[in-house]
Design a protein around this nucleic acid. Structure first.
Lengths: 346, 346
DNA sequence: AAATGAAATGCAAAGGTTTGCAAAAGCAAA
DNA sequence: TTTGCTTTTGCAAACCTTTGCATTTCATTT
């Protein structure tokens, strides 16, 4: 049953029909200069032999692979998984395949990945940089080699490429402004790594929302975690809630941390939202099923994936004659559920 | 700043040094027949010109791409994401890249994916079949073409390839046996699609655990959902808990459904675990942070990924002279948290 | 100086396809 | 039958690398 290794080539077809490989090639590509009868014969035989064009040969000829490198910090995060899903739906529909890599939030790994992907000659890159990435040489080198790049989710200041981002500042501002307007006086912030554009902007949105409501910004009410996992949140939330003067609201940098905070708050006897309101960021599928259900700032992850992929696709067809670079900013949506108090005027 | 498109080739180096490309090739590959001095010159120049071997040419020559096709039903499931993570760690370390595809639980899409991946000539396949897949022709064709395949998580009866699975029966049995031993008399089951080996085995484990405890199997206490999402679970849990004679325990096919069940149970005024015990399957990261924390059957997803990838790797080096096929079964671990009653003897 | 052997390098094919240009074939008009 | 034109096909190069075999170069021995 097992077939021979060698697959049929246009040369096989040509030999069988006593014509040249060029004619076969043209016939299969429906070239107008080929007689209908010849085309018919070739196509019939090709089907019969189950001819499959050798894409490796075409890759070499066309200097392109139809592969796109997608690099994310971690694939087990629902947010990135949803983005990848969007990317996939667009790229596969256009005949591209995705080579997936995760940097595990490591700068070293990211560099290795970029080097590898560029040596296997992917046609384009979709990148969410790691949280440890500060030097951008590897990206700059990539860009100078002429490959199209789209950066998403996390900004890289100083790198001029197309970018698809979220207005993290606005999301944070909305959330914190809501908390204050709903009557909270002491809003704390559990933030993420400050080497990340997203964390910085969310922090700034938090600060500005307080200021715009004439509330003071208290250093002891701001914690920044290293990672984004529950365990990181647990530790930070404990420090925060053990304070003599604990907050009456928490704005967390993401849902995982928010959920960890809810967990700790309950453990410490706080009632949510009566004693303390909590708002997260992301809107993971689980989040609405917690008790209380988690208020959060929704990121349109799937759409971010779609748009990033579409922009890359444009760059692939237009060999980059465009003047500047695109910078698309999605606006997040505040979703109020039961983990935060109701605003009096709602 | 933007460099010319054409990259340096061994021919460029050869011309510059007035030697032949063959010599350059051998020098770079440290062939013993090349004079040390020549090697030095070649390597120096190669570095200076930043020579990168053209892998597309090598692919054509070696008839291999160093790409592995990984196809999963959906990437946004934490379980599959964790498996992919394991696969990635093994394969990348061995110089392979991963082409990721998701079938969205669709048979049609799965077929398309397989055809596409085989036309781009990936060197091997790691596949978790869709829940709609009943005919296996596309897999058989693949196998006959000589590409190594490893099926993981979901069994395909009648397809002889290497498989890495989980003892779903045992996991279900453990969970239900625990529920009964902890005093529950009316254990219900929220199962998944019955076209899935995993769902079938979990159901059977549930049934046999009841029988082995001399409890009767009640048809009205078994629901099978179409999908694996929260919304599927909500609907099924409502039907179940609205029954005149509702269960005092639920064994759910996965954590999402279990969490949905907890949500509905609370909504209907059940106390967990006093009135009703609930156990899930998977152990997602969120699960331990619910109130009450969710008891569950843990699947070693990451390890499943590691082993699957390792087996594939073996097949890639050994051009399949092995006699039979491997069938590796992981044993799941019951994790008891607060959503299920304590056993008297614990 | 010639012969022998070892060491170093080059030639050419192979891998499969596309494509510009040249050549052949077909056909009609002269 | 030749001329001229159109239609159809083939040649060969290009994409880049590796490798078996042939060839060259060099040093050593007779």
């Amino acid at each position: 049953m097992k077939q021979g290794k060698r697959s049929v080539t246009i040369t096989d077809i040509a030999r069988e029909l006593s014509i040249s490989p060029s004619t076969v090639s043209r016939a299969l590509n429906n070239h107008p200069a080929i007689k209908e009868e010849t085309k018919r014969k070739v196509i019939t035989l090709a089907n019969k032999l189950n001819y499959q064009p050798n894409l490796l040969a075409l890759n070499l000829l066309n200097k392109k692979t139809n592969n796109i490198g997608v690099v994310v910090p971690e694939i087990t995060s629902h947010f990135f998984a949803a983005i990848i899903s969007g990317i996939q739906d667009i790229l596969n529909a256009s005949g591209y395949n995705i080579i997936m890599c995760q940097s595990n939030e490591s700068y070293r790994e990211e560099i290795k990945i970029i080097e590898n992907l560029s040596s296997v000659r992917v046609d384009g890159f979709l990148i969410a940089p790691s949280s440890k990435t500060r030097k951008l040489d590897h990206f700059v080198k990539l860009k100078n080699s002429g490959v199209p790049i789209v950066i998403f989710d996390r900004d890289c200041q100083g790198l001029d490429v197309d970018k698809v981002l979220l207005d993290d500042y606005d999301g944070a501002f909305q959330a914190v402004d809501y908390l204050v307007k709903s009557g909270c006086k002491k809003v704390a912030h559990l933030g993420g790594s400050l080497s990340l554009s997203t964390s910085i902007h969310r922090r700034q949105g938090y600060i500005d929302a307080l200021k715009s409501n004439n509330l003071s910004v208290r250093d002891d009410h701001i914690f920044h975690t290293k990672g984004f996992k529950h365990s990181d949140g647990i530790r930070a939330a404990k420090s925060l809630l053990k304070l003599k003067d604990p907050p009456d609201a928490i704005f967390a940098v993401n849902d995982r941390i928010a959920i960890a905070a809810m967990y700790v708050a309950k453990m410490y006897g706080f009632k949510i939202p009566e004693d303390i309101s909590i708002i997260g960021f992301d809107d993971e599928p689980h989040s609405s099923y917690f008790t209380p259900s988690l208020s959060t700032v929704r990121q349109p992850a799937y759409s971010i994936g779609l748009l990033s992929a579409r922009i890359l696709l444009q760059n692939l067809s237009n060999p980059h004659d465009s003047p500047g670079f695109r910078r698309e900013i999605f606006r997040p949506e505040l979703i109020i559920r039961d983990s935060s108090r109701l605003r009096p005027d709602t």
